[in-house]
């Protein structure tokens, strides 16, 4: 499993494009917002955490269809599916983890930098980074189920986003509300943050199991 993790990382690193594309999309979305709402720094500071979160959510959704695509193209997916069910679930989990390191982690690292550009207070910027660190894995995990469902379809990429976006609403809500709570005084930071962590853990169970079932179903 460890070997699989490193293999996936190396492969994605060699392909290169996907990881960078997600990050570039994130930068582009965030950069476009001030053109839409105007350069008022106070307003930007207020909506900054939300903009960063939405940008990161969209960027991680867009890359999802690549999760099983490479394996499908070289036929490796058929071998993966032949395993025991529990091994298959574990494989999906490991592949999702590798996918998140490639596509999700850069977003988390870039977030504080963009937070400065959006005039978000440093504390809130840190909070956004922390919530993204906990929240984007949830998107990748539940997204794995969507990617597995759409793996055999042409034009799967857009479909995955459509299928998964409604399921990401809770992640978005708790991610943003805890990032906000870090700066607005009376609201506590920890309850939404802990709920966000709980959602990530729940998705860590649901996502890979559903993805494994879907991979089985589409390979029959």
């Amino acid at each position: 499993m460890k070997a699989l993790f490193w293999r996936d990382l190396a492969l994605a690193g060699r392909a290169g494009g996907a990881a960078m594309l997600g990050l570039m999309f994130f930068l582009a979305v965030v950069a476009v917002i001030p053109f839409g709402v105007g350069p008022d720094l106070n307003l930007l500071g207020r909506i900054g955490p939300a903009v960063l979160w939405i940008g990161a959510l969209l960027a991680s959704l867009l890359g999802l269809d690549r999760l099983f695509q490479a394996d499908r193209e070289d036929g490796g997916l058929d071998l993966i599916v032949l395993q025991d069910f529990s091994d298959l679930v574990l494989t999906v989990l490991v592949k999702t983890a590798a996918h998140w390191v490639i596509t999700g982690l850069p977003l988390v690292v870039a977030a504080p930098l963009l937070a400065l550009m959006m005039n978000v207070e440093p504390l809130a910027g840190g909070a956004v980074m922390a919530t993204l660190l906990v929240g984007t894995p949830a998107v990748a995990l539940v997204g794995a189920a969507g990617a597995a469902i759409a793996v055999s379809l042409p034009r799967g990429g857009l479909l995955v986003s459509v299928l998964i976006l409604p399921l990401c609403v809770p992640v978005l809500i708790f991610g943003i509300s805890s990032a906000r709570a870090a700066v607005t005084d009376p609201d506590p930071f920890w309850p939404p943050f802990l709920i966000l962590s709980a959602i990530t853990l729940v998705f860590a169970v649901i996502g890979p199991v559903a993805a494994a079932l879907a991979l089985r179903a589409s390979s029959d």
Partner: peptide, 18 residues
């Protein structure tokens, strides 16, 4: 059939969370 069944169930588990 099976693929959409999986999606329906994932959604159903998610409804209370949402």
């Amino acid at each position: 059939g099976r693929l959409s069944a999986i999606l329906v169930l994932v959604g159903f588990i998610n409804i209370p969370i949402i």
